[in-house]
C-alpha cells in the first residue's frame, strides 16, 4: 500500500537544490549491501551555512546515506556505492580526492559519544597532529582551546584538559566529539543522531551549538526527533525505504508536505 506510492521511475519531490553555495552534491547515488539495495537513486545538494536534516523511519537509509558522504561505508566489505558524490569540484569516489583527505574535510559526530580513551586535550589534538595542521606546541594548544571554545566546552573543562575525556558527562562528551571534529577545520560536519543518547538539557546545548556552527560549516544531521529537525534545520529530506521522497525547506516540509508518505510521517502515522 505505502510502497505502491513509489514506482520505479520515482522522482524526488520538492527542491533538491540549495539556495546557498553548494558544498556537496550527490547525483544518482545507489548503495548496495551485497545483493540488497539500501539506497535508490539519491539526488541532493548540501549547501554552506545551512543545516540539512535527514528524517525518516528506522532502516530507511539515512545513516547509510550520511556514511556515504565521508566514505565511512568503505569499512563494510559488502558495501558498494555507485553514482557521483562531489565535494566542491572533486568526485569523492573516483580517486580524485584521497579518502583520508576527504575525512579531514568532512567531519563526523556519532550517535553515541565516542571520545578516545585519552585526555580531553589529546582527543581534540589528535586530528590536527596526524594531519600536521599545526607546526608548534603553542599553535596546537591554541587550536585545542579555540575548538573547545567553539564547541562550548572550554569553560567547563579548561582546568582539567589533561584528565580523561571519557570521564565527562554524556553531553560534554558529545561536545568534545564536536570539538574534535571542528579542530581539523572541515567544510562539512555530518551528525548521526547526535542527541539521541542525551538528556533534554544536554540536547538543548547541542542544538544551540549546531545553530552557531552552521554559520561556518555545512551540517548534515540525521535525527529521529521531528521537533529537533524543525528547531535546528533549514532544509529537511525525508527518506523512506531507501528512497529520497521529498526535500524542501524545513518549514515547507512540516507545514505543507507534497508527498503522501511525508505527510503521514510528519503527522505520526508512519515510522
Amino acid at each position: 500500500m505505502v510502497i505502491d506510492m513509489i514506482n520505479d521511475d520515482f522522482k524526488t519531490l520538492g527542491n533538491t537544490e540549495t539556495s546557498n553555495k553548494v558544498v556537496m552534491s550527490v547525483k544518482n547515488c545507489n548503495v548496495f549491501y551485497g545483493d540488497n539495495q539500501a539506497l535508490n537513486d539519491i539526488n541532493i545538494e548540501v549547501g554552506r551555512s545551512e543545516v540539512l536534516a535527514l528524517i525518516g523511519p528506522s532502516g530507511c537509509g539515512k545513516s547509510t546515506f550520511l556514511r556515504c558522504l565521508n566514505r565511512l561505508n568503505d569499512t563494510i566489505d559488502s558495501c558498494r556505492v555507485s553514482g557521483k558524490i562531489h565535494l566542491e569540484e572533486e568526485d569523492i569516489y573516483s580517486g580524485e580526492i584521497d579518502v583520508v583527505m576527504l575525512r579531514a574535510r568532512v567531519g563526523m559526530v556519532f550517535q553515541k559519544p565516542n571520545p578516545f580513551p585519552k585526555s580531553i586535550y589529546d582527543n581534540v589534538a589528535y586530528g590536527p597532529k596526524i594531519h600536521g595542521i599545526t607546526t608548534s606546541k603553542e599553535e596546537l594548544d591554541e587550536l585545542v582551546e579555540v575548538s573547545l571554545e567553539k564547541a562550548g566546552l572550554l569553560d567547563e573543562v579548561k582546568d582539567r584538559l589533561h584528565t580523561p575525556g571519557t570521564a565527562l558527562s554524556g553531553g560534554q562528551q558529545q561536545r568534545l566529539c564536536i570539538a574534535r571534529a571542528i579542530a581539523i577545520k572541515p567544510d562539512v560536519i555530518l551528525m548521526d543522531e547526535p542527541c539521541s543518547a542525551l538528556d533534554p538539557i544536554a540536547t538543548e546545548k547541542i542544538e544551540d551549538l549546531i545553530n552557531e556552527l552552521k554559520e561556518n560549516y555545512a551540517i548534515v544531521m540525521v535525527t529521529h526527533s521531528m521537533s529537533q529537525a524543525a528547531r535546528v534545520s533549514q532544509r529537511a529530506a525525508y527518506f523512506h525505504l531507501g528512497n529520497l521522497i521529498e526535500v524542501n525547506d524545513t518549514e515547507k516540509i512540516f507545514n505543507d508536505p507534497e508527498h503522501e508518505l511525508t505527510k503521514n510521517y510528519i503527522s505520526g502515522r508512519t515510522g
Partner: peptide
C-alpha cells in the same frame, strides 16, 4: 568497540594510524 574505529577514521586517521 567499533565506535573507536569510527571515531579515528572520522577525523581522517589512516587505517594504520
Amino acid at each position: 568497540p567499533p565506535s573507536i574505529r569510527d571515531a579515528a577514521l572520522g577525523v581522517g586517521a589512516s587505517k594504520m594510524q
